[in-house]
Design a protein around this nucleic acid. Structure first.
Length: 509
RNA sequence: GAUUCCGUAGCUCAGCCGGUAGAGCAUUACACUUUUAAUGUAAGGGUCCCGGGUUCGAAUCCCGGCGGGAUCACCA
């Protein structure tokens, strides 16, 4: 077994395994079980150590070794804990005061590597070059690393050397990516902060956080191809949810006046830098409200999230400075198309729309109905123009089978989408609560499906039954959390805001 | 799914027109008790993604596959 393993290992891996057994021979457990007391973090030291006060005299800290500079009878190394990197200073005669210098000469200098996790005790001082450093009085190996870690070296002018640039490496081995790239760790902290800020906002507003089924017998609430699975005991197909909308509305029927869920949704579609098969959507529904109320609520929510994250309402995204200061601009759907094309397509029938598309070089499919055509026209002609947060409102009824018809505009529904940086971030309605109308809308969807649109919605009879009991007037919204995080962290790939983006399975030989 | 680019040491990359591989960092050895891409000297390390083909000879050319990126399609 050893031979077989050794043949596939690199030189460096073999060396580290040899060091492992060497350590064991010396009676040192490379993976000790007991806790190591930590009384300070690297960040704490770097921010609060003051040379003259001589504080941080008796510290105990753990971290991973990120670099070592061996000076002979003394060494400098850098360790990294969850908060920061800090330099440590290991002096032979300090950790080996007696005759026996084995702990330094052998254990520290030969058997400890970059990547190893150690605990140290000592005190903080400043080197003559002015760097805050931990003077090590004793150290303990807490976990031996068996793989070479590609640590980035940065020159004085900030230029990075040997930075892992292979995205495949970074996404497949995110654990290593996180170790070697502090900014990646920071990105995900930001994501957590965004979610936390929004959650607090919703809880403060009195909404109830809920959980609803991921496995659904009918994949409803959106139009998308679902993942299908099978339940053995029930012997039925089940679908991974493409949305949780219909379940959250059932809860509004049940009498809660505000519910929200940060939901993983699943869609069996293509993958690219803005699409992952599983993704996170925040949906929430508030009774007694309409979409105008929701626009204001949404503005406040985002303004707060951005401020909590950056301390200001402005975010730098690529070339643009985007300002989330409420209120956001509002543009009506058909006004946006009119603005872009000079034509008011609102009353066009399907044929006229197809002619319009042809004129503007917009590709169409025979299976597309009016709704899809409108959708296509908007995304081709208008979407990219909205850089600053802009609400697009009053969509055609064909595009929105779950939305209440507009109170004064025939053929439209009370719906808005929030566009930021040319992309849709949120989608909201005055929710359709008329069960008869809802049934008709589902039947329209059924026709679309028969026509070849395999993403049209299925009829959910239980949902209709719920509506028949009566749902209060309600405003609802879905916010794409991944895309929001991309925006607020200035990343243009969804893979940068997902710890473990979907990848083709790796082959291990 | 389509098109296109890419796949050489642990990491970053070089290797043009075909002659079985190089550099820096990392690793190993020695020196060095305040360095910071530490330094100096020396050494080791590669199924050149996989499988076929052309050829006396392939990392290099051709075909197929696998994996990744980009663009497009579907979608959020």
């Amino acid at each position: 077994m050893e031979l077989q393993a050794a043949s596939s290992l690199s030189e460096q891996e073999i060396v580290r395994r040899e060091k492992l057994s060497e350590l064991r021979k010396l009676g040192i457990d490379p993976y000790p079980p007991e806790s190591f007391l930590v009384n300070v973090t690297a960040k704490d030291i770097l921010e609060n150590y003051e040379r003259d006060k001589l504080n941080y005299k008796d510290i105990s800290i753990c971290g991973r070794i990120m670099s070592i500079r061996d000076m002979g009878k003394a060494c400098f190394a850098v360790i990294q804990d969850a908060t920061a990197r800090i330099q440590i200073y290991v002096k032979r005669d300090e950790i080996c005061p007696g005759e026996d210098k084995k702990l330094y000469d052998l254990v520290w200098k030969k058997l400890i590597d970059i990547g190893d996790i150690i605990g140290i005790k000592g005190y903080v001082f400043t080197t003559k070059t002015g760097e805050i450093t931990i003077h090590v009085l004793s150290f303990k190996l807490l976990s031996k690393s068996l793989r070479p870690l590609p640590v980035v070296k940065t020159t004085e002018d900030g230029k990075a050397h040997d930075e892992v640039s292979d995205p495949e490496f970074r996404y497949r081995q995110r654990y290593a990516d996180l170790i070697i790239h502090p900014h990646v760790r920071e990105n995900f902290r930001k994501r957590s902060k965004i979610v936390q800020s929004i959650r607090n906002f919703l809880l403060d507003a009195g909404l109830l956080e809920v959980e609803t089924p991921i496995l659904q017998p009918i994949p409803g609430g959106a139009t998308a191809r679902p993942f299908i699975t099978h339940h053995n005991a029930l012997d039925i197909p089940l679908y991974l949810r493409i949305a949780n909308e219909l379940y959250l509305k059932r809860l509004i029927v049940g009498g809660y006046d505000g519910v929200f869920e940060f939901a993983k949704d699943f869609r069996n579609e293509g993958m690219d830098k803005t699409h992952n098969p599983e993704f996170t959507v925040l949906e929430f529904y508030v009774a007694w409200k309409d979409y105008f109320w929701m626009m204001e609520f949404c503005e406040k929510l985002l303004e707060k999230a951005v401020t909590d994250l950056h301390g200001t309402t402005e975010v730098r995204v690529g070339e643009h400075a985007i300002d989330f200061k409420a209120p956001f601009k509002r543009v009506k759907f058909f006004d946006a198309i009119k603005e872009a094309s000079g034509e008011d397509v609102r009353n066009y029938d399907e044929q006229a729309l197809r002619a319009f598309c042809k004129k503007h070089n917009i590709q169409t499919e025979p299976s597309m109905g009016r709704g899809k055509l409108f959708d296509e026209i908007f995304s081709e002609l208008c979407e990219k123009k909205f850089i600053q947060p802009t609400f697009i409102l009053d969509y055609p009824v064909e595009m929105s089978p779950l939305t209440k018809k507009h109170r004064s505009e025939p053929g439209l529904v009370e719906r808005f989408e929030l566009m930021v940086n040319g992309k849709e971030i949120a989608n909201a309605y005055t929710e359709l609560n008329d069960p008869i109308d809802q049934r008709q809308r589902f039947e329209e969807q059924l026709k679309e499906r028969e026509r070849g649109d395999d993403e049209a919605m299925y009829i959910d009879h239980d949902f209709l039954r719920a509506l028949e009991y009566g749902m209060p007037p309600t405003a609802g919204i879905g916010i794409g959390i991944d895309r929001l995080c991309m925006l607020l962290t200035n990343n243009d790939s969804i893979q940068e805001v997902l710890f473990f983006p979907q990848m083709r399975p790796e082959k291990f030989s």
